[in-house]
Computed example of a mutant assay.
Amino acid sequence: MYRKYELEHMVKKCVNLIHGLSSKANGELTCYYRSQQIIILVGKNESKPPVTVNETKAFAHELVELLTREMKKTQFLIGIGSQHKTFSSLHRSFFEAQKAMRLMQRFKDIRIISHFEDYTVYHFLDFNIKPAEMEEFFHNTIGVIHHHDQTFNTNIISTLEYYFMHNQNVTEAAKAMFIHRNTFIYRVDKIKELLNSNLKNADELFQIQLALNLYRLLNKG
């Protein structure tokens, strides 16, 4: 009973804080609580230009900063759906926002805010390529790294992900992984050795990044 009261109190506080930022939402804001999720709807006037993804994310970032500042012991995750013109299409935006959150959790993403469009590549791969074809491409491209990780209990694939995530900036990637720069360089050298690549050829880099996307979709981690 106490837990239920505590949860209701927390939700009420969140909703009040969200309404406090309504003036920055670029539209009329409505929010309600359902199944441990707070759903925020932002209505737009058709005479005004649509809000961009970056503008929506900027509002979400302000929202998270406010919520985490006022509710320090609570973690927040925000998924954003696409804009739709008709009320009957709202369920699609809600579905997209939920899927964005699920993908963040599934991929153990470092982000706490994501838009459905952030995962366009994954949606395309998931709907257009058969699992067996994904598996084959992954195996042929970076399967040797996955095998090395499984055999020697290393995390070379994770290093590769951070390497691309930080635009091949070794210093920034090492900081993000909380390891020494020299350790990261050693791992990258190991990747080059395993793949027999200098990681400079554009076509090779594209294939490796595509294989990393499949790594997440196939739940290899």
Rank of each mutant, 00 (worst) to 15 (best):
K99G: 01
T151A: 06
E172D: 10
L77I: 10
T151F: 07
K200E: 11
I40C: 00
P50T: 07
R216P: 04
Y5C: 09
S22R: 07
A58S: 11
Y5S: 15
I80P: 01
L66R: 10
H146Q: 15
E161V: 12
E70A: 08
S82I: 04
K220P: 03
I129L: 13
F127A: 12
H166P: 00
H115Q: 01
I113N: 01
N182K: 13
K73T: 13
H147C: 06
L67Q: 01
L77S: 07
Q150D: 04
T151E: 09
N45V: 14
E55H: 06
Q150W: 09
Q98R: 13
M134N: 07
L29H: 05
E135C: 02
D203M: 11
S22Q: 05
S197R: 10
S158L: 12
F184I: 00
Q150A: 15
T141Q: 03
T74K: 11
M177E: 03
F94A: 12
E172H: 11
I185T: 15
L77N: 08
S35I: 13
E193I: 07
F138L: 08
V121Q: 09
Q36I: 06
D149R: 07
Q83P: 04
F124K: 11
V42N: 02
M101R: 04
I80C: 00
I112E: 02
V42F: 04
R106C: 07
A132K: 12
Y122D: 05
N128A: 07
T151N: 06
L29V: 01
R187Q: 10
I191P: 02
R187E: 03
T159N: 07
I80K: 00
M134Y: 01
L199M: 12
H166C: 06
G79Y: 00
F95L: 15
L218Y: 09
I80F: 01
G143Q: 05
I208S: 05
K24R: 12
E62N: 12
T159C: 14
L7E: 07
T183H: 10
K175R: 13
S93H: 04
G79Q: 00
S89H: 15
R181Q: 10
Y5I: 13
H84M: 02
T183Q: 05
H147F: 14
Q207Y: 15
V42A: 02
E204K: 11
L63Y: 02
K108A: 07
